[in-house]
């Protein structure tokens, strides 16, 4: 299953506000790509462009050499799945219904799920550890459970490429680690290609093999985490002083925030 998603010179604006400009990069089978950048730098918009939900104003995205705009939505949905930050539902749906909705791109003429769809739903629910929740309603679940259910729904699409838009933004550190461990395992063992947007630089640095750093809609730097996450780059993009060293556990770059106020207070207290 080779997959190649190539963004070429993407630009996009909402009304008059330019959100993304001249973005070019590639995602290949087996990649684990992290996209980082401050709020408003266009991360979520980029994810929507990569899935073809939005169309770029200039430039194009090609999936295996074919423009996304020329591929039927349902065919994209069989190859690319998205996990968002969460759902706001006005009507109650239970976990089993939600996970089975991931099978929509494969529904046959009768428009009902067959035994094969139930097998796949069962498998991804076991994988994401949401067994026992199948009759519970989504709105009754905890944040960690909700994100695992959304992951199960995305995996039920049997995607080759998984796009994650800050999937753990509302989760505790333990659930965040479990979530990303699971994604990383599938990336390593099954060759699932992953693109994750995160505002947590350290998280992206630890899990991604390659990082894209956005600054106000432009691609500021890309490369392996140690090349991209440097004191100079972070300072230039976020406008804050940071310390960068090596995480002793993961050996990735580690960013420590440097608050001038707190450091001054600490020095004062020392004296």
């Amino acid at each position: 299953m080779a997959l190649e998603l190539a963004a070429d010179n993407l630009s996009f604006s909402y009304k008059s506000r330019q959100v993304l400009q001249d973005i070019s990069f590639e995602v290949k089978s087996g990649d684990f790509l992290g996209i980082i950048g401050p709020n408003g730098s266009g991360k979520t918009t980029l994810i929507k462009l990569l899935d073809g939900i939005l169309s770029p104003e200039q430039g194009h995205i090609k999936l295996d050499g074919v423009k996304l705009a020329d591929i039927a939505r349902i065919k994209i949905a069989r190859r690319i799945a998205v996990v968002s930050q969460g759902l706001w539902l006005n009507f109650s749906l239970n976990v089993q219904q939600l996970v089975l909705m991931g099978r929509y791109p494969y529904l046959g003429r009768m428009r009902f799920e067959g035994s094969c769809d139930y097998e796949i739903a069962k498998r991804v629910m076991e994988l994401t550890d949401v067994c026992g929740l199948e009759r519970r309603y989504y709105h009754e679940l905890s944040g960690g459970e909700r994100q695992r259910v959304l992951l199960a729904k995305a995996l039920a699409q049997e995607p080759e490429l998984l796009l994650l838009d800050e999937p753990t933004v509302y989760l505790d550190i333990n659930h965040t680690l479990d979530f990303f461990d699971l994604i990383k395992k599938m990336n390593k063992e099954q060759g699932l290609t992953v693109v994750v947007v995160s505002h947590d630089i350290n998280l992206a640095a630890d899990y991604a093999d390659r990082i894209i750093l956005l600054k106000s809609g432009r691609l500021f730097a890309q490369g392996i985490p140690h090349q991209v996450i440097t004191v100079e780059n972070i300072n230039a993009v976020y406008g804050k002083k940071v310390l960068v060293d090596t995480n002793p556990v993961t050996l990735g770059p580690r960013v420590t925030l440097f608050s001038e106020l707190l450091s001054r207070l600490a020095v004062d207290a020392d004296l």
Partner: peptide
Amino acid sequence: YLYTPKINLLLLGEDEAAQLGVE
């Protein structure tokens, strides 16, 4: 009635429905 599977997905929100293959 032919649109009912799509209607189900619209309950999740428009982006989510589009993501799952609905025009």
